[in-house]
């Protein structure tokens, strides 16, 4: 790592970099292991020098720095509240029970009775597509889904498009769930012009 890079990291820690540049640098640190490690080491050193050994550089350092940057432009005290999220929470065993309760809360009346075939378009029937911007109407055939065929594209998509924005998991969950459904039951077909909502809260 070059001396200039180390100086930039040092400047970032000292708050000598503009807010926009800080954002960019924090992202680079997040995607570069070497920078990330250096960043963490610098904080450990600084914390030790300040006799804050118990607050060693943790994984959320960049968040703390970003908060500090944000604080500089906002009234003091806004983000100075105690980090109550550090309080202990229940274990995994309890989580399963809570999850069940959450299911009831999310879906208090149970999911509306849906015949699995209702959501399926006739798989061999062309569906007219009405475009919101006047695209020529073209029949699009809805076909059975093969996640194993599409899997590579989805996997690559969420690596390139999702991971960098911290949405990889959220993006991947529907695909994973969908895949399990396919393997457990019927292949799913698609209505190209319809998105089926879940129940509203």
């Amino acid at each position: 790592m070059s001396k200039e890079t180390r100086e930039i990291i040092s400047s970032l820690m000292d708050g000598e970099v503009s807010r926009e540049a800080s954002r960019f640098l924090v992202r680079r640190i997040g995607s570069d292991e070497e920078l990330h490690a250096t960043w963490a080491r610098y904080h450990v050193v600084r914390d030790c020098l300040r006799n804050r050994g118990e607050v060693y550089a943790r994984s959320d350092l960049s968040v703390r720095v970003r908060n500090a940057i944000a604080d500089e432009e906002r009234p003091r005290g806004r983000f100075r509240q105690a980090r109550r999220w550090l309080k202990p929470v229940g274990g995994a065993g309890i989580a399963a029970s809570v999850a069940l309760l959450a299911v009831l809360a999310v879906n208090p009346g149970g999911a509306p009775p849906v015949n699995p075939t209702e959501s399926l378009v006739d798989q061999n029937v062309s569906q007219p597509f009405s475009s919101p911007q006047g695209i020529p109407i073209t029949p699009v055939i809805s076909r059975t889904v093969s996640t194993n065929r599409m899997g590579p594209y989805l996997l690559r998509h969420y690596q390139v498009a999702g991971a960098g924005q911290g949405r990889a998991i959220v993006g991947f969950v529907p695909v994973m769930v969908s895949n399990q459904r396919l393997e457990a039951a019927e292949p799913e077909a698609v209505n190209p012009d319809e998105n089926k909502p879940v129940d509203s809260q």
């Binding site: 699009v140 809805s142 889904v145 529907p174 769930v177």
Partner: peptide, 11 residues
């Protein structure tokens, strides 16, 4: 030509 849906992802 065809459209598929995988969860909330369209292809």
């Amino acid at each position: 030509e065809r459209i598929e849906r995988h969860g909330t992802t369209h292809a």
